[in-house]
């Protein structure tokens, strides 16, 4: 593998994703002002009165929700990360790319770079908006950097799932069905909207098996509590993410091999 060639390919392919996004006005808009922000502002205000400060262990519901919204953004971006490859596969563009002498991983790596960068930018936008509404992360800028790293690690595994699906499904109808089937339970069966302690027992069990929960439980204290509470949670989350990513990448590689050869 020629490093110089590899860089040239990956850069060109990544620029293609950036260009596409900048040309798709509608999806550009939704990428910047994404629905997740409405969740934050709307539900943050709506449930402010309903939320019990004792249960959520946070100064207000919006600061509680902020961590969940950050991770939901990672979830949505990650799970949707393979869609463009699916379209490329369906309209033959992927075949054209694969008929060129590029390293077989270039397309995937370019997609990762793009999805992860966009996700990182969105996390910053969400935290800024939350800031305007008075949410001040307890751990400051270093804490935000840790959040970005955690988000990125979670994004890697999710994007791998999405790409694996893109390479395996027969039609994009299937893709979106599975996507819908995965993403809502991932959100509701996690600590994104309510803390585990507020859930019935069976739901807690399910939520504990959901990597989302562990990621949120690491991000949330970075925002509302501080380093002392956050460090052990972050350590656990990193361990779980290492396992999660390893599994997803393994599955993704297999799906890719089967589809591309």
């Amino acid at each position: 593998m020629n490093v110089h060639h590899y860089r040239q390919e990956v850069l060109a392919l990544t620029m293609r994703w950036v260009r596409r996004l900048s040309r798709e006005k509608f999806s550009m808009l939704f990428t910047l002002v994404q629905p997740m922000l409405f969740w934050l502002i709307f539900f943050g205000s709506l449930f402010q009165r309903a939320a019990d400060i004792q249960i959520i262990q946070a100064p207000n519901y919006m600061s509680f929700l902020a961590g969940g919204v950050v991770v939901m953004t990672v979830l949505n971006n990650g799970l949707a990360g393979g869609v463009d490859l699916l379209f490329d596969k369906e309209n033959g563009f992927l075949e054209r790319l694969m008929s060129t002498p590029i390293h077989r991983t270039s397309v995937i790596v370019s997609r990762y770079l793009f999805v992860i960068t966009i996700t990182g930018m969105q996390i910053l936008v969400i935290l800024s908006i939350a800031f305007i509404f008075g949410v001040r992360p307890e751990t400051g800028l270093p804490g935000i950097a840790v959040m970005l790293v955690i988000g990125m690690l979670f994004g890697v595994g999710l994007t791998a799932i999405s790409m694996a699906m893109a390479f395996s499904v027969k039609s994009h109808g299937d893709f979106f069905s599975v996507l819908g089937f995965l993403s809502l339970p991932m959100i509701f069966l996690s600590s994104a909207l309510v803390p585990l302690s507020a859930m019935p027992g069976w739901m807690q069990v399910l939520a504990l098996m959901n990597p989302m929960t562990w990621v949120i439980d690491a991000v949330r204290p970075l925002i509302i509590t501080g380093w002392d509470a956050a460090i052990p949670q972050v350590a656990i989350a990193l361990g779980i993410l290492a396992l999660f990513d390893a599994l997803c990448l393994y599955g993704g590689t297999r799906a890719f091999r089967r589809a591309i050869g």
Partner: peptide, 19 residues
């Protein structure tokens, strides 16, 4: 037609040039 609707003709060729 394996064409990316959002790229210009020249951009297609530039992309392939790099590939």
């Amino acid at each position: 037609r394996a064409i990316d609707r959002f790229l210009t003709g020249r951009e297609h060729l530039e992309l392939l040039g790099d590939l």
